[in-house]
Every structure is written in structure tokens, then in C-alpha cells.
């Protein structure tokens, strides 16, 4: 009965519903990526600052997101914050908060890594040519940093997109949840679940794969 199962996807507005669900996760991911890049820059700068205290805060922050599964962080914010502080954040807001908390630290670490990876003598030989500090930053350091950074930032972005699948667990109606609703409605089609989950799988792949390919090709180009 498999041919019947796959037809569930295209019956009525089912496919549009799936796409709308996907848009919910994507929207969360895009907002998160935007916030993470901006705050991550600050994070990276603070990580390189002279203040020991500021650096330690960043260090602990980074370790927390490295050690805690994102799902645990989501639960902490979604269920915990209501109890602790009386904040009743809805699922989407919790997700943006948690993923930005995570993304900021990871982005910041990438920025720091890229900035410190440029050999000292690059700055020194630019200074030896008589360039001003601003010129050195503009013409020597920035272009090299961006080249190093861009593929990594893109890769992290695909990770963020994949991770947003988790919002299903805090009752956000995203693509997986929509899929389950469809499966529920068409419970008479036994193979519907197979096709719906396969479709969700494929949808994620079709979004993340091109982005990964882009990162890969940038990496190869800049490597030469």
C-alpha cells in the first residue's frame, strides 16, 4: 500500500502545511544566526580582552554550551525559568534565547580563533611598510580573517538549522509536529508515517546540503 502512503503528502494542503512548519524552524534558525553573529563578535572581542574576569565569564559560558545538550538548555529555559523567575516564555522565544546563548558562544570562539590564527609577522610586515593601524586592519587582517571565518560560520549555521528541530520537544508546532498531525489524520494509511518522516528528512537535507556545499567550496577556494 506504499503508493497510497506517499499520496498523503500531496493530498489537500498537506505539503504546504509541512512547508509552513519548516518555515517555523527556519525562522527561529535565521533569527538565532543573526543574533549569534552580532553578539558573537562582541563575545570574541571580550575573549581577547585584557580583563581576566571578563575572559573567565566567557570561558565558563563556552564550557556550559559545550557540555550541556541543547535539549537540556531548552528544558531549563522553557520549564525552569517559569518556576525560577516566573517568566512564562513561549516555545519560540525560549528556543531563540537558548540557541542564541549557544550560538553566541560558538560564534565568538570562531571569531577569536580566526583573529588569533593570523601570524604575527603579517601585522609586523604590514607595519614595516608604514601602514597605519587602521590600514593594517582594513587591508591585511580583515580580509584574511573573513576568508578563514566564512566557511566555519556557514557550517555553524547549518548546525543551528539542524538543531532547531528540537523545538518540537517544547511544544512548538514545527515541521515534525505538523508531520505527526498529518499522520494522525490519515491513520488509515498505514505507510503514511514512513512517507511523512521521509519527507521531513529530505526537506532538512535539501536546505542544509546546499549550504554545506557552499561552505566546502569556499573552504577549498580560500585554501589555495
Amino acid at each position: 500500500m506504499q503508493d497510497l502512503g506517499i499520496s498523503v503528502l500531496f493530498r489537500g494542503v498537506n505539503f504546504q502545511r509541512l512547508l509552513l512548519g519548516l518555515w517555523v524552524t527556519l525562522r527561529i534558525a535565521l533569527i538565532t544566526i543573526g543574533i549569534s553573529i552580532v553578539l558573537g563578535l562582541l563575545f570574541g572581542i571580550v575573549m581577547m580582552s585584557r580583563s581576566r574576569a571578563a575572559r573567565s565569564v566567557c570561558r565558563v559560558w563556552l564550557e556550559i554550551v559545550r557540555f550541556m545538550p541543547q535539549l537540556v538548555l531548552l528544558y531549563l529555559v522553557y520549564f525552569g525559568f517559569a518556576r525560577l523567575f516566573g517568566w512564562n516564555l513561549d516555545g519560540e522565544a525560549s528556543a531563540v534565547l537558548v540557541f542564541s546563548f549557544w550560538g553566541t558562544a560558538e560564534m565568538g570562539d570562531l571569531f577569536r580563533g580566526a583573529l588569533t590564527s593570523i601570524p604575527r609577522h603579517q601585522r609586523e610586515s604590514a607595519a614595516a611598510l608604514g601602514l597605519t593601524r587602521a590600514q593594517i586592519n582594513r587591508y591585511i587582517l580583515l580580509p584574511q580573517t573573513v576568508r578563514r571565518l566564512l566557511p566555519q560560520v556557514i557550517n555553524l549555521s547549518t548546525r543551528i538549522i539542524k538543531t532547531t528541530a528540537l523545538v518540537k520537544m517544547i511544544n512548538v508546532t514545527e515541521v515534525l509536529k505538523v508531520g505527526q498531525q498529518i499522520i494522525g489524520q490519515f491513520y488509515r494509511e498505514p505507510s503514511a508515517a514512513f512517507w511523512v518522516y521521509a519527507a521531513v528528512f529530505l526537506l532538512y537535507f535539501l536546505i542544509c546540503w546546499p549550504i554545506s556545499l557552499l561552505a566546502g567550496s569556499l573552504e577549498r577556494r580560500y585554501h589555495e
Binding site: 547549518t158 528540537l166 515534525l176 512517507w195 518522516y197 528528512f201 554545506s212
Partner: peptide
């Protein structure tokens, strides 16, 4: 490519709830 570009959660649902139907 397939494994790196899809979420584990979706993979698990597919394995656990999708495959039994076929």
C-alpha cells in the same frame, strides 16, 4: 552528506516511527 545535513531527531523518528510502517 546525508547524515551531516539532517537532524538526529528526524533520523530517529524515521527509524522508530516511519520504518515499522513499511
Amino acid at each position: 552528506e546525508l547524515a551531516r545535513n539532517t537532524p538526529l531527531l528526524v533520523q530517529l523518528f524515521f527509524l522508530y516511527a516511519g520504518l515499522p510502517r513499511v
